[in-house]
Amino acid sequence: MRSKTTADIYSYWDTLRGHRDVPGRAQIEPADIRHILPDLFILESKPEKGIRFRLAGTHICALFARELRGSAFDALWLADQTSRMSRIAAEVMKRRTPVILSATALAGARERLPIEVILLPLRSPDGAVDRVIGAIAPLSRPHWLNATPLNYLDLSGIRVLDTAKTNVFLQNRPEIPVPPVAGRHRQDGIGNAIRRVLHLRVFEGGRQD
């Protein structure tokens, strides 16, 4: 993980889950993570509505200069990546597996900003794993950041965290690059990529006890 924010929310999520695969939404105590709350969001999957922001921190809304609550998660991404991003978030919930996304934020005429996004599955009060807690963390703070809103995010890579292993902070595990949609023949490519990385190549995560 390249951002302290993503590392902190992963550590908190991992502590909450204990020996289970996924923690519950009701376990989250905002006071415990107050220092990163502005950078956090919660997604919710609803039939016929797709995956939408249930909550979005003030820093995230400020980045895009709009309120994100109730809006579609895939709307933050380039138009040709929207279906891909919906599938990624759905896979995180279905497989109960956290992922880290590498992306470039596009702003203004040609401003660019490296971004790290983490998606961590959550169990809702009815027992279904249909929520995600995550963070959007800029990896630098250029002078224009607070004056120029981000337009879209451009996905470049994905890492699946193996929660059964340790050393989550290792940087030498391979990231799976995500090619442009136009270069793919099948629309379910990202699902295949997640299944492939789960089986073969993972970014180690988990407790150190």
Score class of each variant (00 low, 15 high):
1 M>C: 12
2 R>N: 14
3 S>E: 01
4 K>W: 10
18 G>C: 05
19 H>W: 14
26 A>D: 14
28 I>V: 12
31 A>K: 08
31 A>I: 09
35 H>L: 13
35 H>N: 12
37 L>R: 07
52 R>T: 11
54 R>S: 11
58 T>L: 06
60 I>F: 02
67 E>I: 08
68 L>S: 01
72 A>F: 06
74 D>E: 14
76 L>Y: 02
77 W>C: 00
83 S>V: 08
83 S>R: 08
84 R>Q: 14
93 M>I: 06
97 T>W: 07
101 L>N: 02
109 A>V: 15
111 E>T: 04
116 E>M: 08
118 I>E: 04
119 L>N: 02
122 L>T: 10
123 R>P: 08
125 P>D: 11
125 P>K: 06
134 G>F: 01
135 A>F: 02
135 A>C: 01
139 L>Q: 05
140 S>N: 12
142 P>N: 02
144 W>T: 01
146 N>D: 13
148 T>Y: 03
151 N>K: 14
152 Y>C: 08
155 L>Q: 02
155 L>R: 00
156 S>L: 03
157 G>F: 07
164 A>P: 01
165 K>S: 15
166 T>L: 05
171 Q>G: 12
172 N>H: 15
172 N>F: 11
172 N>R: 13
173 R>K: 11
181 V>H: 06
184 R>P: 00
189 G>R: 10
192 N>D: 13
197 V>Q: 14
199 H>F: 10
205 G>C: 01
